[in-house]
Design a protein around this nucleic acid. Structure first.
Lengths: 339, 339
DNA sequence: CTGAAAGCGCTTACAG
DNA sequence: CTGAAAGCGCTTACAG
């Protein structure tokens, strides 16, 4: 493999000149620059990443921490990852993907060994045990998901309370008086998935404010189970005319549940889900939905991270917590209830 | 950040002794080893990955190349990735995830810069333009997917021809005389997805050998379209009693298509799909299926790669092409046709 | 059993 | 505008 010494020799210059000619960090005569470039392409020279990292303390690699938990919908996770990965590449960074089950240990290993310039964490829990490690690390960190304590980190998430209010107010204004909200499984909450109760509590409050009845329940995240649960729910609440779904598996199962009962949306039920457009397309879900914007959130996290990595000013800026405003994607699954 | 010089100083030994005490590459007195270990934990020392890579020419990182093409089913891709990632971690390697659309350029960048010790490629095309780059690289490469030319590479794939024969012979032996095989979209083939026609041609031959009629068609990979196509297919071939699905979207759509027509499997149609158990569970598909074993294939690829990376003997072993034998997962969706 | 030194391949002050 | 040299933090022959 060619080194910069080979390039320098072939171009008839010193190693430092070859290096500067390539980095552009000081002015170089056109003639020398051309000779160096010619040598580079003749030798097929690519800088050794380890040597460069050692010299500059920069790896141009971002660590991406994602856990594929059995009770979370894997394809949804993937959307966040691709948002991160695509934006990172666009900004000239590669992605070290970490899926270890022991998050804190893996995080310490990756940051302490200086394999990455910064880190993006997904699956954020309310009290996430990776956060103390991340705060102690020299590298900056960005989270997709809102923990209890955001100090020292940049945080990006959907505004789940606003999503809950939006779902309820939209149906309340159409005249619905009794709604059912199906959330993620209870153990997602127990594991620290705060977005579940953030949406639910806000929905509950909005319902009370508007004098609407809201039945808030947890649903399974696996297919056969959630189908039966949905069916039972419809039986249990015959007066309900609106369904709110903060649970991907429930959204995916609902069409066949309704179908099996000879019902449909919006005729018999107005329905609003919370998932990504991509998810809706994959499962051809006919429901209006609150866009969870995984790719946009992943992209925002990387951009902020890179700003901190690259600019000395950026590194000192106060940390941000940005909650993106939910938007309703209209697929025509809501209308006033039947009289 | 502590360096090995700090550790050596605190332990009162030379840097080389500290290094050897940690690597165990030469014998060290118990007392010195303990002092070094104590210094390491007191300082929280973690070796700098870049420096180590520079000194040893080993990064303990494996490159994972995956493309998320719009017409391939993303969750299925994810299963391969997790198979690779989990096994790599088990063997002490991290994963550099590369999703660039320009595969050859990204591959050259990653290998020439020595960011990785080896590479696993997914989405292999018949004439994959990444393969010449991989063969020219210093690092070993493993493929999940079978290209036209396997020289210089370790290759792992499902035995698709055998899968096709198995599907057909299973239904033929039950007495079915007219089958429909729904494959992936035509442009997957045009892009080089040889597994599509490998399965189809073998199925076709097996059908001829047994005097069974096989209608082989391409289906869409997106949900609303494939549903209509399946429905049209059933109309077009009223005599068909068996459905073979080498198309995830078709498998996911079939239950509701049958349901809408008041039909079910196995009563009206015997059905065999080709997908992973995980996929079947996610979509709660009630069909017997040929396991595509993405996690197993990913794992095999990494193990072989690591063997080549780590043992000088392994590096010289002849390259292998391993096609795993399809197995039928029985979910009771096949039976003899109705008289 | 241990240490002093060279070297991996870069970048970047320092000098001219 | 260019070069000689130091240094990033490791590992590993070489010597004792």
């Amino acid at each position: 493999m060619a080194t910069i010494a080979d390039v320098a020799r072939l171009a008839g210059v010193s190693r430092s000149t070859a290096s500067y000619a390539l980095s552009g960090k000081r002015s170089i005569s056109d003639e020398v620059r051309d000779r160096v470039r010619a040598a580079v392409s003749e030798l097929g020279y690519t800088p050794n990443a380890g040597a460069r990292a050692l010299a500059t303390s920069q790896t141009r690699v971002i660590g991406l921490f994602a856990q594929f938990l059995p009770d979370e919908f894997a394809p949804a996770m993937l959307q966040y990852m691709l948002g991160v990965s695509d934006t990172a590449r666009e900004l000239g960074y590669d992605i070290l993907m970490v899926t270890d089950s022991d998050g804190p240990a893996a995080l310490r290993r990756i940051t302490d060994s200086r394999m990455v310039d910064g880190v993006v964490l997904l699956n954020i829990a309310e009290e996430d045990d990776r956060l103390p490690v991340l705060r102690a690390a020299k590298q900056p960190g960005a989270l997709v998901g809102l923990p209890a304590d955001c100090t020292g980190l940049d945080v990006f998430d959907l505004d789940f309370p606003e999503a809950g209010r939006l779902m309820v107010s939209h149906l309340a204004e159409l005249g619905h008086r009794e709604l059912v909200l199906v959330s993620q499984p209870r153990h997602v909450v127990e594991r620290g998935g705060a977005y579940v109760w953030r949406l639910r509590n806000a929905a509950q409050e909005e319902a009370e404010r508007r004098g609407v009845t809201l039945h808030a329940v947890h649903g399974s995240s696996s297919q056969p189970a959630i189908g039966q649960e949905l069916s039972d729910l419809l039986d249990a609440h015959p007066g309900a005319t609106g369904l709110l779904l903060n649970n991907e598996a429930a959204a995916a199962a609902l069409p066949s549940v309704l179908h099996a009962r000879g019902l449909n949306s919006p005729e018999h039920y107005s329905v609003i889900g919370r998932y990504s457009d991509e998810f809706g397309r994959t499962f051809s879900l006919p429901f209006s939905f609150i866009e969870s914007a995984p790719d946009r959130l992943g992209s925002m996290a990387v951009r902020q991270l890179v700003r901190r990595i690259e600019s000395p000013a950026g590194a000192e800026e106060p940390h941000v917590t940005r909650l993106i405003t939910p938007e309703l994607g209209d697929r025509g699954s809501t209308r006033p209830p039947r009289p």
